[in-house]
Simulated scan of single mutants.
Amino acid sequence: MSQQGAALQTYNNELVKCIEDLCSKREELNRQILQEEEEKNKLQNDIRVLSERLARLNQELARKMAARNDFDRTIAETQAAYMKILESSQTLLNVLKREAGSLGKADMTQPRDS
């Protein structure tokens, strides 16, 4: 009977050791889970912050692109108007030269009173 008691004691000791090993492994796994949950929360916060920053940047870019488009439109309109002014100036200059030439010829053909 003493052999049975010794065997039972051995089994009991091994069982306790196995349970302690399992508890130790569980605690290590739990520590890893907590660590990864902390990292996950940090990453989620980083994503939230970056998403908000991206949204602000997109709004700012849209505003600046609209302003740039306004500049482009104003520049194009101004350049077109300026070209019309240049064309009108050239036309006016040609008319003035032609009229001045005509007046000069008319002045030369008329006798002078002296």
Rank of each mutant, 00 (worst) to 15 (best):
S51A: 06
T74E: 15
E39W: 02
E20M: 03
S89Y: 09
D70R: 10
S2R: 15
R26H: 14
V49L: 07
A6G: 00
L22N: 06
N13Q: 13
L43Q: 04
I19M: 12
M108F: 09
A66I: 05
K17G: 04
L43R: 10
L61Q: 06
L86W: 02
D72V: 08
Q79L: 13
M83F: 04
Y82C: 06
L93I: 14
N41H: 05
L8W: 05
N94I: 12
E87F: 04
L103F: 02
L29G: 04
K17V: 07
E60R: 09
N94E: 15
D46C: 07
Q90I: 09
S2E: 15
T10H: 11
A100R: 13
L96E: 11
A76C: 03
Q110K: 14
Q90R: 10
K64E: 07
K42R: 14
E36F: 10
A67K: 15
T78L: 08
R98D: 12
M83S: 12
F71M: 10
A55F: 04
E20R: 03
S114K: 08
A100W: 06
Q4S: 11
L54K: 15
N58G: 02
V49Y: 01
I75C: 03
L34Y: 06
K64D: 02
I85H: 05
S88L: 10
E99K: 08
E87V: 03
N45H: 11
E20D: 13
S2H: 13
N94F: 06
Q35P: 01
T74S: 15
A76I: 02
M83T: 09
Q32F: 03
I85N: 03
D70V: 01
A7G: 07
A7V: 09
G101E: 02
I47E: 01
K64S: 07
Q3V: 05
L54W: 02
M83V: 03
I19A: 13
A76E: 14
D72P: 00
L50V: 00
Q90A: 12
S102N: 08
K40V: 12
T74A: 15
Y11N: 12
Q59G: 11
D46F: 04
Q79K: 11
N12L: 11
A76T: 06
K25V: 14
D46R: 13
Y11D: 08
S114N: 09
Y11S: 09
E27K: 05
N12K: 09
Q110P: 00
L96V: 10
A100Q: 14
N45Y: 04
P111M: 04
E37P: 01
E87G: 06
L86A: 11
A7S: 13
Q32L: 12
N13P: 00
Q3E: 15
A106F: 01
R63W: 05
Q3N: 15
S89G: 00
E39T: 13
L22C: 03
Q44G: 03
E87N: 13
L57P: 03
I33M: 03
E20V: 07
I33W: 01
T10Y: 08
R73V: 04
L103I: 02
S24Q: 08
E38Y: 02
K42N: 08
I19C: 05
D107Y: 11
L86E: 15
K97D: 08
S102M: 07
A66E: 13
